[in-house]
Design a protein around this nucleic acid. Structure first.
Lengths: 201, 201
DNA sequence: TCAATTTCTTGTCCTAGTTCAATGCACAGC
DNA sequence: GCTGTGCATTGAACTAGGACAAGAAATTGA
């Protein structure tokens, strides 16, 4: 009894999430859910490290995660913040089965619904409609990354920060400024200066 | 006779291109080809302008194209250079049927194979396997954009230029420096200075 | 072939953002 | 209740790259 109601709750959000992009039947959703692995992870855990092959896509039920690169000079750049109702993965590594060059790390205690490579294959084989869902997900990702690239190139620090806190108000709250600066491509000190300058207005 | 051999030639490259990612039968490829529209376009033609809804994906048989944004301040940023064996489109606008905020412009006389929205729908309906091809295409696009974002944030001008000319030697040759600078997110003047500095070594 | 337009180069001056260092703050662990 | 560790703030000195201007070189096109 407990388990059932618990698991219903567990999959509520993700089922709504996938239904938004594509209509699925109850039976299809049930199959989908059975292929997901529920995982709770402590803060500051790595889901993926540079050099490993990424073998999952994870939907975030609860918590906050960042993915980032570290380049040759030890310079860290944040690729993505992910919170509730988002997915994280290194798609390139996942699909080409190549070693990743990203880190994926929890910033808070998390509850994740994990789709492994094997599970995803089964899913796509049994319900090809899901192919469309994943294509749409990647597509949106691409569009938002394009947008971010434009901002990164054409905006100054203040504009970037304002745009960010408008676009992701919750994340701007939850995440240390340090990381936000890295996401926006500026030093933490300078972000701090920008913020105090803005506060004075 | 002439027509046949001509059209065989026309579709040779694209058929190889799609077969690389996914095996298709002769019949499937023939159907695919029949849905493509061959278009030759003069240099400096716009395939898409800000405000229009993008209704195509175009495969480049011959020529060179750029897609770019112009932001509120009139600042131009190049999103992509595309040459032979690449696709261009504004995926977001295309699939959401939203007005685009990009321009897509030919930099040379081009021969394109154009897949319109309608044709693409037919294609996906009749050969669902193509869904996979398009997902992979978007996915690769995403991966390369991630890479570019990292470079943009973490490299200095010289490193960016060196990386670019290593990664896209042909494009570095074919395209005015002006545009390369815009792609790399630096002023044309500064790129010129970087190049003379490099030449002196 | 010559003019017209685009693109490239070079120099000077200037500013947005960096780096480094010091200080203050908050809160997690004992 | 103290203490260490990780963040945030502030300041001073520095620099990569931008903006502007003016001339040179290269392409285009009738």
């Amino acid at each position: 009894m407990k388990t059932t109601s618990n698991s219903e709750e567990t999959f509520l959000a993700i089922n709504q999430h996938v239904s938004k992009t594509c209509p699925f039947t109850e039976a299809e959703l049930t199959l989908f859910n059975s292929l997901l692995e529920v995982r709770t992870v402590k803060k500051k855990t790595f889901l993926l490290q540079q050099g490993e092959v990424c073998d999952f896509e994870a939907y975030i039920n609860k918590g906050c995660i960042r993915s980032y690169y570290i380049n040759e000079n030890g310079f860290e750049v944040i690729l993505q913040f992910a919170v509730e109702d988002w997915w994280v993965s290194d798609i390139a590594s996942f699909h080409e089965q190549q070693p990743s060059n990203q880190f994926i790390e929890t910033l808070e205690d998390c509850e994740l619904l994990v789709l492994t490579g094997e599970a995803k294959e089964q899913l796509l084989q049994q319900i090809p409609k899901f192919e469309r869902l994943f294509r749409l997900m990647v597509q949106r990702n691409l569009a938002s990354l394009q947008h971010r690239l434009m901002n990164t190139i054409s905006m100054n620090a203040e504009e970037k920060y304002l745009d960010f806190s408008k676009r992701y108000p919750t994340i701007a709250q939850r995440v240390p400024q340090l990381h936000i600066a890295s996401f926006l491509g500026m030093s933490a000190e300078f972000l701090s200066k920008v913020r105090t300058r803005l506060a004075k207005k």
